[in-house]
């Protein structure tokens, strides 16, 4: 008896549709509706999908995403759920009723959110810079740094080392200042091209690359070229690199 329901997403629809064997491990995916919203699920055992094998996990995650995108394609707006959200039935069993009750309880909120994300998609924007390139620029343009750099040339070996450390410290501070400045500048420019934005944690990159900003953006795919244009301008700046992926279902905005 399948006492669990793996929930992929919530969509705006009233039919108890059957979407075929497109789920994780080729499970049969179908919908449990409540009025005009519906939860897209597959029946499973009440245990989470876990594996030591990276390939297997990747396969599952891709299947999870595929279901969500299929529904999104058919029905327009979806509220995606995270991987491995499995609702279990209580002692009496009826897990389907539980799903319905949950949809009922949060009906207003779910509907509002579906409206909010309708027709929109999530995009990932990551801006990085080459610290070496930028550092060189700064040393060439900043007076304090220029002076210190000059002083070092005239020093003896040991003293030169010490002064180089001071230079590095100062450079570090200037880089941080510059990073802040750029962040705010890009944040404003990108913000004006999209509907909503979320700041995510920076990812560690290989030296001398350093990530400046990691954004999740919610925007209209038909208008996304404005964002594309802005990102193009940024990536054309010497020492700057942009990573732009999407469209994704709106995971970060639900």
């Amino acid at each position: 008896m399948a006492e669990g329901r793996y929930v992929y997403c919530v969509a705006a629809d009233s039919k108890a549709a059957r979407l075929g064997n497109i789920g994780i491990e080729d499970n049969q995916v179908y919908a449990i509706p409540y009025q005009d919203i519906t939860a897209v699920v597959h029946a499973c055992a009440p245990t989470p999908y876990e594996s030591q094998d990276k390939e297997v996990v990747d396969k599952w995650v891709v299947a999870h995403e595929r279901v969500i995108e299929t529904v999104q394609e058919e029905l327009g707006a979806v509220l995606p759920l995270g991987f491995d959200t499995i609702i279990q039935g209580n002692d009496q069993g009826n897990v389907e009723q539980k799903v319905r009750d949950w949809l009922k309880e949060h009906y207003e909120k779910l509907k509002d959110t579906l409206d909010r994300v309708k027709g929109k998609r999530e995009y990932v924007v990551q801006v990085s810079w080459d610290t070496k390139t930028i550092a060189k620029e700064l040393i060439g343009s900043d007076q304090e740094l220029k002076d210190l750099h000059q002083q070092i040339k005239a020093k003896s070996k040991g003293a030169a080392y010490m002064y180089r450390q001071t230079l590095e410290k100062l450079l570090g501070a200037k880089l941080e200042q510059e990073a802040n400045r750029r962040f705010h500048d890009f944040y404003d420019k990108i913000g004006s091209c999209v509907d909503e934005m979320k700041v995510e944690k920076l990812k560690k990159e290989e030296q001398p690359r350093q990530m400046l900003m990691n954004l999740s953006c919610l925007g209209d795919p038909k208008e996304i070229h404005t964002l594309g244009g802005e990102l193009e301008r940024i990536s054309n700046m010497t020492g700057f690199f942009v990573r732009f992926t999407g469209p994704w279902p709106p995971y970060s905005f639900v």
Binding site: V10, D58, V61, H64, G82, E122, S252
Partner: peptide
């Protein structure tokens, strides 16, 4: 190339349900 973005999204994002979930 983009799988890493998907992994970022699919764990720790999405609608949260406060029910009896199977917890890993």
């Amino acid at each position: 190339a983009t799988l890493v973005d998907l992994l970022d999204r699919v764990f720790d994002k999405g609608v949260v349900i406060h029910l009896d979930l199977i917890i890993s």
